[in-house]
Amino acid sequence: MRRRHHFHIDHLGHSISVTVQTGHTPVVEVLVDGKETGYATTKDDRPVTVPVELPTDPPTAVSVRATLGPGVPRCLLLATADGEPHVMPPRLY
């Protein structure tokens, strides 16, 4: 059974949203300011890291790490500038 989970965080003035779709082939989709900038699939519940760039001057490289299971998925924003992981809270639609 496929199920969608949404996460969101604002970082350096940019909106970062993640959709994690669970099921037979899990999918992780990352949007920055409403535009798709990262996408990954996997065949099991292992954590997935998706590298993306924020449209700053110069561009800022960050990564989103999605832990798909067991249980409810979780997401972290891994910012290279400050080295601290930021928990992405779930977003209800």
Rank of each mutant, 00 (worst) to 15 (best):
G13P: 06
T19H: 03
E36W: 00
H24Q: 12
T22P: 03
F7N: 08
H6P: 00
S15N: 10
G13H: 08
Q21K: 13
D33M: 04
T37D: 03
T25N: 08
V20C: 10
L31H: 14
H14M: 04
T19W: 00
V20I: 14
P26Y: 09
S17Q: 14
R3M: 12
R2Q: 13
S15A: 07
I9K: 07
L31R: 14
H11W: 12
S15K: 05
L31C: 09
V27A: 13
D10I: 00
V20D: 02
D33I: 04
H8Y: 12
V28M: 04
S15P: 00
T25A: 11
P26R: 07
V32F: 04
T37W: 02
R3Y: 10
T22C: 10
G34A: 12
E29W: 00
G23V: 10
Q21T: 15
H6E: 14
S17H: 12
S17P: 01
H8P: 00
G23L: 10
T22G: 11
V28K: 05
T19C: 13
L12E: 14
R2K: 07
H24R: 13
S15Q: 10
P26E: 08
G34Y: 02
V20H: 02
D10H: 10
V32N: 03
F7P: 09
I16Q: 04
H11A: 10
V30H: 03
H6S: 14
K35W: 06
L12C: 09
D33W: 05
F7T: 07
E36R: 13
I16A: 03
V27M: 13
R2P: 15
V32I: 11
H14K: 05
D33N: 13
G23D: 11
I16D: 03
S17Y: 05
H6K: 09
T19G: 09
V20R: 01
D33A: 03
V32L: 04
L12G: 02
E29V: 13
K35F: 08
R4H: 14
P26F: 08
H11M: 00
K35G: 02
V20Y: 03
L31K: 10
V27P: 02
H8W: 09
Q21Y: 01
D33L: 02
F7A: 08
G34E: 07
G34N: 06
G13L: 08
T22D: 08
I9G: 01
V20L: 05
F7L: 05
G34L: 00
V27W: 11
V27D: 11
R3F: 10
H24N: 07
Q21C: 12
R3V: 07
H8M: 07
L31Q: 13
T25F: 11
D33Y: 06
R3S: 12
H11D: 09
V28F: 05
F7I: 06
H24M: 10
H8N: 09
V27R: 15
V30D: 02
H5V: 01
L31I: 00
T22L: 15
S15I: 00
E29R: 12
D10E: 15
R3L: 10
H8F: 12
S17L: 05
V18K: 05
T37H: 00
D10C: 01
R3K: 13
L12N: 08
